[in-house]
Design a binder for these strands. Structure first.
Length: 457
RNA sequence: GGCGCGGUAGCCAAGUGGUAAGGCCGAGGUCUGCAAAACCUCUAUGCGCCGGUUCAAUUCCGGCCCGCGCCUCCA
């Protein structure tokens, strides 16, 4: 059974197979820009890519998958943030890189095998730009910036079906101000490979044959992909918003530089919507993982919710979906607890893996999983269940939610109620339960004791 | 204006040319004094609207309406 995945370039389902003689599947996933905490939309893409990574490992073996995901640690946003905070760029990006790693770990995402940074690959980027200059695919503008000449690459626009970035009448762009560097470019479609140093860049500049400056955004992925995976890779992924211009530009740069096809397969996950709209600060509908944890949800519930929609369809995120996820996870937990460690049907979850292998149909797979769960634990292999859970990356033993200190007054009420119950003074016990409920706490009785939790909203 | 995606039960969401997976919510039940948990049962003659093709369409084709995304930094 091979994995079939939609290819954004050919727009069809194509099987995933390693193309290099060593049998290692080369997988590049565009990573985050580290200037702020990633939001849950970012994490949708990273979680989806993590499932993909897991499927590849299941298919080819863990040693036959090389997963690279970059960190963009120098660009307009990171530099602006550092300037605003009066801190060195590296300090700012380190902070948010650490936060990103912590969030990924909480969401049970496997770390990529290589996580290259843009600032760690200046030389490689300069080298590529150099080749593009020599081949006539790039030119130096009067201010010292270097641009890629889009007109020099016939294949430009194949991925996004956007021939040129021409402004058309009626376009959403019409009337909007052009980029500041527009007048330096020979053509509006051209994009920056190297940005000449400006005052606001501060110390964040490197020497190059064209003067001091910093790399453009697009070239970093081309350079890091080339260095760590080679000239032709098996799969390149990212969110749909990267399709144009980022990935289109990567193809142009890499293919003009290397003279061979860049990526054999392209995959783009769709956006997470909140309240029916793309998340944005201005709409006030942006959530980070911490925001949700503060509301009492577990990271695993977020992961589940992110997988509840087809990765190639926009998913409308709601807090309700997190409640549903939390409940579903609980069902999975108790199902697992009811499985006997003895042998069982190893193929019980074949339908789950089939759905996953069929274009990463995570909601279909989740449906198949529960279909098995609903039939009951009899004869189901624990190992097979765990293998299915591994594919989703759902960790059932993750702490349910954040721990909250129980106030002394609440604790005292609970003690009183427990004593009343032991004395079989049920009227008093019920009255105390009401008090606790009114105070926002629920008291859960067991045979041998009780526990307290903040009431679920 | 160009490119792309979608409209399936209260909410979320798969799927198929032959009669609607799954999760949540809700309802009923079993079990514990109650509550919670757990477990069991039930919950769309219907898949945006209008035509067409077909023995048969939610599924194919055409038109329309509505929503979203990209075309500018963006997962």
């Amino acid at each position: 059974m091979s994995i079939r995945l939609h290819d954004s370039l050919s727009r069809e389902l194509r099987p995933l197979q390693p193309s290099h003689p060593d049998g290692v599947y080369r997988f590049y996933n565009c990573g985050p820009t580290v200037y702020a905490p990633a939001h849950i939309g970012n994490f949708r893409t990273f979680v989806v890519n993590d499932v993909l990574r897991r499927l590849l490992e299941l298919e080819f073996g863990p040693a036959r998958v090389k997963h690279v995901r970059n960190l963009t640690d120098v660009d307009d946003k990171t530099i602006r943030r550092a300037r605003e905070e009066g801190r060195p760029l590296a300090v700012v990006t380190k902070q948010w890189t650490d936060k990103f790693h912590a969030d990924c770990a909480a969401l049970n995402c496997l770390p990529p095998h290589v996580e290259p940074t843009a600032t760690g690959h200046i030389r490689e980027q300069v080298d590529m730009i150099d080749v593009l200059m020599q081949k006539g695919n790039a030119y130096r503008a009067p201010d010292g910036s270097v641009y890629f000449k889009v007109g020099s690459f016939d294949g430009y626009g194949r991925l996004s079906r956007v021939k040129e970035r021409e402004l058309q009448l009626g376009s959403a762009l019409a009337g909007k101000p052009q980029a500041a560097d527009a007048d330096e470019k020979e053509d509006v479609s051209d994009f920056a490979l190297w940005k000449a140093h400006k005052n606001e860049d501060g110390d964040n500049a490197w020497d190059s044959p064209w003067g001091r400056g910093r790399p453009g955004w697009h070239i970093e992925c081309s350079a890091m992909s080339k260095k760590h995976l080679g000239d032709t890779i098996d799969l390149h992924t990212g969110g749909v918003d990267l399709l144009f211009p980022h990935h289109e530009n990567e193809i142009a740069q890499s293919e003009c530089c290397n003279g061979v096809p860049f990526a054999r397969h392209w995959y783009h996950s769709e956006h997470l919507l909140v309240d029916g709209k793309k998340m944005s600060k201005s709409l006030g509908n942006l959530y980070t993982l911490d925001d949700l944890v503060a509301k009492g949800f577990s990271p695993m519930a977020l992961r589940y919710a992110l997988l509840a929609g087809h990765p190639r369809k926009q998913l409308n995120f709601t807090l309700d979906s997190l409640h549903a996820a939390e409940k579903a996870l609980g069902t999975l937990r108790s199902f697992r607890a009811s499985l006997a460690p003895a042998d069982g049907d190893e193929q019980a979850f074949a339908a789950v893996h089939a759905a996953l292998d069929d274009d990463l149909n995570t909601p279909g797979a989740l449906g198949a999983l529960f279909t098995v769960v609903n039939r009951g634990p009899a004869g189901v292999s624990l190992a097979a269940f765990d293998r299915a859970l591994f594919a989703f990356g759902l960790k059932l033993d993750a702490p349910a939610a954040l721990k909250v200190e129980t106030p002394a007054a609440i604790q005292a009420l609970a003690e009183k109620r427990w004593a009343a119950k032991q004395a079989k003074d049920f009227a008093a016990a019920d009255a105390l339960r009401k008090e606790l409920t009114a105070a926002g706490w629920s008291m859960l009785d067991r045979r041998d004791g009780y526990s307290l939790e903040p009431a679920k909203k």
